[in-house]
Design a protein around this nucleic acid. Structure first.
Lengths: 173, 173
DNA sequence: TCTTAATTAGTCAATCCTGACTAATTGGAG
DNA sequence: CTCCAATTAGTCAGGATTGACTAATTAAGA
């Protein structure tokens, strides 16, 4: 339900139409979610059906119909509950990159090394980009700090893994 | 495609039926994926359609039909490519728990603290459980080590966050 | 030797998610 | 003032995912 929470939390501050929501998601929340545009519209329609938000269609000129979404009292209650649930629970992160590592021994260590070196470069670039993010207001800065810490840890770990495969390559050579 | 990689990597070692695959996923690969049973069956059927694996129906007694899956040469080639792609790229982890933190300022700091304390307990339990996991063979141990390192980092970070909200609670009090 | 619980094996309807698309408006270069 | 690219706004068909279910087999206790 964290996708719903994300949308409700934004609508709580200001009523908005879908496009502004998607902008917020991409610009500010990229570190914790990757909801795509059609998903956001889908969830908004679902929440409207449940009475958590209202949908008001507006039209300017003959642009495509624009819907303005606004939180209802029921939605506010739901928001409070989802927020508390989210804060009180720990959801484990999954590492899709570990699937490859689990099978890395199927390749020669000499073949694995350049591949991991490529992974390392991508990770280092991501870390650098995140470090360059301008300061965010309030708790949003927490998310950036979290991401930086996480990426630093991943980089250190990846270097250990690479060292392991270097040793292995030397042995078998 | 890391779900397909996961399945192909297992079938490469031994032909197997759906149930054994799901067992492996839950027991050994829980740290890097959360594929559910029907998803695995869906992917197996899709890969069979693509010719990466073959499906042979067997029947013992009058049990429900059991399908044994086996990697084809085409599947082996695909496996090689997916494995190399996975090893060479870095896929960012998402933190659903950060959504709540982003909005934590909507609650009083005094209300946030017990919630985060609950999150901390869940995280600490998860870390302890992962530390207790018996040693795995080869690279599978890498995944466990990765998870432990990650959980340790998360715990340290969460303590920082909690400290932040403690300061905030003291200020507003 | 019943009865119950756990394990083995898989299916299906309903829901969720997104790549690819349409379409109008605005900004700016020439 | 015209044309092209970027921005704004949203839709839809099709594919992915899973909760809830069915059903036979085995294990174990009373």
């Amino acid at each position: 339900m964290e996708r719903e929470l994300l949308l409700l939390g934004f609508l709580r501050r200001e009523q908005a139409h879908g496009y502004r929501l998607n902008e917020f998601i991409e610009r500010e929340m990229a570190t914790c979610t990757d909801i795509k545009k059609p998903t956001a519209y889908f969830l908004l329609a679902k929440m409207a059906k449940q009475g958590w938000i209202t949908m008001r269609a507006t039209r300017e000129g003959n642009r495509p119909l624009r819907r303005v979404y606004r939180l209802t009292a029921k939605g506010e209650a739901q928001y409070q509950q989802l927020l508390r649930e989210n804060l009180a629970s720990f959801i484990e992160a999954k590492f899709p990159g570990d699937v490859g590592l689990a099978y890395a021994d199927d390749l020669e260590a000499q073949d694995v090394l350049p591949l991991l070196s490529n992974r390392r470069a991508a990770l280092a670039a991501r870390l650098e980009a995140t470090r360059q993010v301008p300061p965010h207001a309030g708790s949003l800065q927490l998310l950036v700090d979290h991401q930086v810490l996480h990426l630093e840890t991943e980089l250190a770990w990846l270097d250990q893994v690479i060292a392991r495969f270097k040793r292995k390559a030397k042995q078998s050579q």
